[in-house]
Design a binder for these strands. Structure first.
Lengths: 340, 340
DNA sequence: TTGTAAGCGTTATCAA
DNA sequence: TTGATAACGCTTACAA
């Protein structure tokens, strides 16, 4: 690989000291406008590109943010990533991206990889398997700025961004009840997840408020395996005491529900109404179109990045204080929850 | 940020020279087994993590691969990314990810960012706007290993991975004709794209072979704007001479077609049959379910990464020779192309 | 306003 | 088998 000219060569070409050139390029006030101009034009002519590693080594920062997500083929996480990248690119930050595939072991390995300072900060959403958080504590202890979004880790005292999980879930459940549902089921990926807990609380409270008693069997704990989930849901739909409404706490479980329904004689929404947290662009193209709770994914990503970059550029003035920032979701009612 | 111990401190703790410790950790043959063991155990005890920037500066390589895609909310690219990451992680490589949002200017900026050696290699799929390729030529000239996939740049003499675009498109069109279509339209994102050209050729040849004369108006050049595309397609469907079959060369145009059809009284597949290149997991859940040409996205990603890593680890033995490697797609027939 | 020199944390060369 | 030293390319005290 030909790395092009370096600072020394550029300086030699200009008959200046490397330090002068460095300062000129960094727009230091101690350099005369005349030399600045000369330096900059020569730098452009020779297409000088500063070596990022020399700089990182010297300044102990890399202009890089690591993003850890549990899944890439997921509209929510993809949108969050786009939001993060928007802001990051604006400020000259690069993104290292890691997918844990919902696997804690992979998550631990990745987190350990970041212990060496390769990234200036980490923004992540934990895997659905994460209960032991020692790896995250270690990362936090290192002093690396760390932010969580969506699937947060409450025990780490830092800033977290989520949507109004409790409220949305409560409203979603209430909507199902208003549409005539008497027996609403709740589908979740894992009991460990912060979002599961909040969304489940909202679901339970809406049931109680409506005078409906929550059935334990209707809080269905799904797995990572698509086919298993479909069968699990199908079994529930085949049982004598089947639900007439479903709140899916994540998108993939709504899709699994649709697949499961196809294996029965039930119809959505006549026999079963479905609402789901989902950022699918094409919820309206499903048959029937799916009522969704859409999270402000891009905004969440942008806010994460903004806060992080503020912290990185002005470390003294900005602390990632231990708080949860909530940005509301939006419910879009479609055919899957139509009343008869 | 507390970076933990460094080599010098570790060496001091062990009462050894830094160079010795370095060699021990790198499993050099010139170090005795005894000291190796001592060093390694102490390194673990102190949780020593080598500074990646020092190493990168010294070795002039970063163990990082840059990936540039035109779109993140896209099943194909997400799967390719997963494939790349699989292999990269296995070999200790990190991924810098950039989304051009189908914008050449953004693509140019990103490519220029990579000129400084931040990444050891680049794998990319060009934006649909890319016709001037000077930025790519510059990148190539720098000697950075560069690989293209899917939307390739034929003029850069390196290895490219694609699916059998011509053949799949030919077969897809033939399928439409066999199902009774007489007037097949072809939807494309941009005429500049390599995949557009190949897929269009396949489409045309299938028409000609069937004795159907291609109508220029049926080769529809769409834009980046979803709503515009929907209207463009709707207009075509409302014209006197409307197509009875559509081959969408990318997924989003099939979805736009579905949306457009909703604005007409036409029915799929009775009035209009649709087939599309698509890696959607839920093609079967659309109404009607969508016949797809599915690209081997994960494999493409894996192959890109494998080749690149081979090149990076054994540069002498491996060249990215100027060739196009084709991995076949798979057609899955669903309801959207059912004959009456 | 510019130049000299040290140092960031590694690895590689050379010497012991 | 191990140690001293230089070098990677940059920024920043300190000197001029």
């Amino acid at each position: 690989m030909n790395n092009g000219v370096n600072l020394k060569e550029l300086a030699a070409e200009l008959k200046l000291a490397p330090s002068t050139v460095s300062r000129a390029l960094n727009d230091s006030w101690e350099i005369s406008e005349a030399t600045k101009k000369k330096v900059i034009s020569m730098a452009e002519k020779l297409n000088y590109q500063p070596n990022p590693f020399a700089r990182s080594l010297r300044e102990n920062k890399s202009k890089t943010i690591a993003v850890i997500i549990p899944e890439r083929i997921n509209n929510f996480f993809a949108q969050v990533m786009d939001g993060i990248e928007n802001i990051a690119q604006e400020h000259g930050y690069h993104l290292l991206v890691y997918n844990t595939h919902e696997d804690v072991d992979r998550e631990k390995k990745i987190v350990n990889l970041l212990l060496n300072g390769r990234a200036d900060a980490v923004v992540m959403s934990v895997s659905s398997q994460t209960s032991d958080i020692s790896h995250l504590e270690k990362l936090y202890a290192r002093g690396l700025p760390l932010i969580f979004f969506d699937r947060i880790c409450t025990d780490i005292p830092t800033t977290k961004f989520i949507t109004n999980d409790y409220e949305s879930s409560y409203q979603g459940t209430k909507h199902l009840i208003q549409q005539g549902c008497k027996k609403v089921a709740f589908l979740m990926l894992s009991k460990e997840l912060s979002i599961t807990k909040e969304r489940h609380r909202g679901y339970l409270d809406a049931l109680l408020e409506a005078g409906l008693s929550p059935e334990p069997a209707f809080s269905l704990n799904c797995s990572m395996c698509e086919e298993q989930n479909i069968e699990l849901i199908r079994e529930m739909l085949w049982s004598n005491n089947r639900p007439d409404g479903i709140l899916a706490s994540v998108e993939k479980l709504a899709l699994a529900t649709y697949q499961a329904v196809k294996r029965t004689k039930l119809r959505i929404p006549q026999d079963l109404k479905v609402i789901s947290f989902s950022n699918m662009g094409i919820a309206g193209l499903l048959e029937p179109s799916l009522t969704t709770i859409t999270q402000p994914a891009i905004t969440i990503g942008q806010e994460c990045a903004k806060l992080l970059i503020k912290k990185l550029t002005k470390p003294k003035q900005n602390d990632l204080i231990d708080q949860v920032i909530t940005i509301p979701s939006k419910i879009t009612i479609r055919s899957s929850t139509l009343a008869e």
